[in-house]
Design a protein around this nucleic acid. Sequence first.
RNA 1: GGAUCCUUAGCUCAGUUGGCUAGAGCGUACGAUUCACAUUCGUAAGGUCACAGGUUCAAGCCCUGUAGGAUCCACCA
Length: 960
Amino acid sequence: MKFASAYEPGSFEPDIYAAWEAADEFLPGGKVDGDAKLYDGNPNNDPKTYSIVMPPPNANGNLHIGHGLTIAIEDSLTRYHRLRGDSTWYIPGADHAGFETWVVYERALEKEGHTRFEYSRDELYARVWDFVQEQRGNMELQVRALGASCSWKDLTFTLDENVVRRVYSTFEKMWNDGMIYRGEKLVNFCTKHQTAFADIEVEHKDEKGHLWDIAYQVVDNERSSASEDALLAQRTDSTSRSATPSSLNTARSERPSEIVVSTTRPETLFGDVAVAVNPEDERYKDLIGSSVKLPLTKREIPIIADEHADPEYGTGAVKITPAHDPDDFEVGERHDLPRIQVIGFDGKMLPEAGAEYAGLTTAECRKKVLNDLKDAGLLRGEKEIVHSVAHCYKCDTVIEPMLKEQWFIDVKKLAKVAIEHLEAGEIKFYPASKKQVLINYLKGLKDWNISRQIPWGIAIPMFRNVDDPTEWVFDTRTNLTEIEIGGVRYVRDEDTFDTWFSSSHWPIVCTNWEDGKVNPYYPLNVMETGADILFAWVARMIMMGLYVTGEVPFKEVYLHGLVLDAHGAKMSKSKGNVINPMELVAKYGSDAFRLGILRGRSAGMNQAFSEQSVVAGRNLCNKLWNISRFIQSMVEETELSSDSPKRSSRASSRGSSPVLVVTADVGESDLASVSSADVGATGLDSVSSADVGATGLDSVSSDNMGEDWILWEINEAKWQIESQMKNYRFSEAVETIYSLVWDKYADWFVESQKIYRNIGLLKATLEAILKLAHPFMPFVTEAIWQNLSWTDGLLINAGWPTDFEYDPMSAENFEKLMVLVITARGTLQALSEAHKGLNKADITMLYGNDSLVDDNSLLIQYFTRVKSVISDEGQPRGLRLALANHEVYLDVSSEVVADYAASLENKILAVGRELDALNMRMMNPNYVDKAPAALVKETQDAIAEKSALIERLKLERDTI
RNA sequence: GGAUCCUUAGCUCAGUUGGCUAGAGCGUACGAUUCACAUUCGUAAGGUCACAGGUUCAAGCCCUGUAGGAUCCACCA
């Protein structure tokens, strides 16, 4: 493989991914024979397992930026654990996305001039299935493009047979446990999509509306009680009416003749069955128990007392419409009132609203009702208000609360068990605060409506007795519309399951959990998903996992926040600020996208994202690419030019500086044994920085302390990344890589290797860095690995680096040298700014009796770009570099130094301020008493150091 | 209305049980550069850590309050 000179991710990413896949690297345990899911559970063969599932993207959709983040996070975790040697299983998925897909399909159907009502449910199901199959593959290609190292042969589709089987088995268990019931309840109904929604799927929006006051005429007492009795008599199914006030017959002549109710929905008045007032409300106390005539109708309805009526709101009297308002529904239940449906599922008024109104839309009806009320002189007021209105999250249609028979799960027990396990701390949350949020949610959880009137989904396995509509049987033969059991005919329920009901089984079905079988991959190590579906999904997976398996489905939960646009606004199609991850991948490469999206992101937070951060990521990839190319070229040069294996000298690219080439032959497969301290032990051929002195070779090689330093830095970075990954601090881990590769490896170590070269160490350190970076930037690191002449195999499974051994004293000395260099650079820059025309290439650096400088004069000269670094021969002159704390001078004229004096004075003042602050601290007896001794000592040392620095600076100033 | 979170450099964000002389990327300014990389190198400027109190030897971090913002939940007849 020829190392291309330019970093062009598009040219290698697809090939790299194909190579991983072809080598079966994504299977748990790497290259294993047979079915990974049938893991034998033999403890002797067990590596540590690590399992994670992908929240299934819509099978026929495209990935959005949130998927990009999810995959960047999950795949980084996956690759990290794979490198660590865990048997790692990242399980991909595809979602049938019941409602989402249905909306798309129905739109396509409409375009062809058809409607859903022309087909049976089974026909529709088959058609959508084909539709999805046609579209499918797109999503999977995009997941691949992002580098997800997931086990494709284990891809789970939410309509797969094993999913349906598992869902049916849970449903049956719940049915047998009495947790499933069929109930007529108010459901959130979208009249456009003709389906009900769970509460959580409804979007509430604040909107301007009106509050109308409508007068209901009180009928006289005799008639009132008579009609009340008549009304009650109609309801043969009622057995209890304890809540009816006992003051039913206490009539008073001075009672008001009307009661004015406040409503935002006058059109529902035909469904009114009562008027409620607060029992404490003095204004209406006497009216409780009497009746009013329902305007525009001939009906009479009672006035009841209920806490629901808020005396402060409107007129304090509220009409009760149980069939069209969730609160009223509950009031109706408390008082055992009938439910009269007046709006149809098509959003139009039913005959129950009266002949004049039937067939009108709710909006038309509202208009007419208001007009008619005005004509009748019953409209008493109109006020503009802002109230929140439920909308369909897909088509924005106003949600109608509708009476409908639906399947419900009684969630009390499920929620209780989940809360117990959560409170016992069995699941760790990132961010931690979400645990309590979830517990609070579960505490108030209402029964779960699992019926959806959409053909695209898992059929509810329930059949109704044709002759006895109250009898239902569970049966999995949902491919049949009608079945016969014991001579009795049953017809299938036409509804399908809420997608969350099946997806709550996700960890169970993805890992192929089976009762009684050892499954080292369940519970999952982590569930990573968006914080926005904590309730809808995470909560339900926990409840279902516990119900089905008795265990929590995952040990940790990492929730990511929303990816906002560059200005912190939510991305939306209407705002036109949507960022397409695939466009960024095409433009900058997959690695750049991953680095960019991980950067500046922490658990649970909604954070901005912009192309800029992807550019920064691309630049890092480019940097690593070029470092590697450079090292490869050095390796090639050395191997070509060194017939003598011991060492060879050659002219450097800069001309005059000698380059010492130290070669250490390193077996690439055995990094553990490679360190500067111990390669020397393998023989004279391999010379390392720490032991060359001992071998008696040319003493110049002992200057190579940059090597000890980089080994130390790599160890540090490795340790940091381990801790950051454990704590899900991806952003920081990326920063660590960034700083290691760029600020440390490239800017100091590789630069220093231009002067003193150690090929074995270059190889070993580059390998370690590629491994550390691989989880975050998999493509470029693998491509480099493939390009390097001395590596073999695939990086993806090359293992995590082990610690290097190094000489700490030597590493520390390199840091001193760095300080010296940085100080010299800063001073040189300041000098040339203060004194125009000064060129640092003309300046000589002089040093006194100082072995650090003496030993490293070539390096210092190279890093600072001064003319030369030579001994002052006992005659120091020029400007002393006080900050460097070494006997080092820049040989410049006194005029130049004078020009520089002002900035020197500023420095003295700044250090003086720091010193004052430290002294203040030490003068405080409480501090000396109470602060930890080590800290006090640190302060004392700092004072000593600053004082000395000030002295040096003053000396520097005074010599001017 | 309830809950949770946020407010740190021009922008986007770190800052892990209080020890800070507050960091990074991008941006800005100045300078460098024939060869691994201008997707480069070097240097620098830039902060009353939202505000007001409190606890502590010590507060960006803990406590109380205020203001602004975000998200979620409930609800508005």
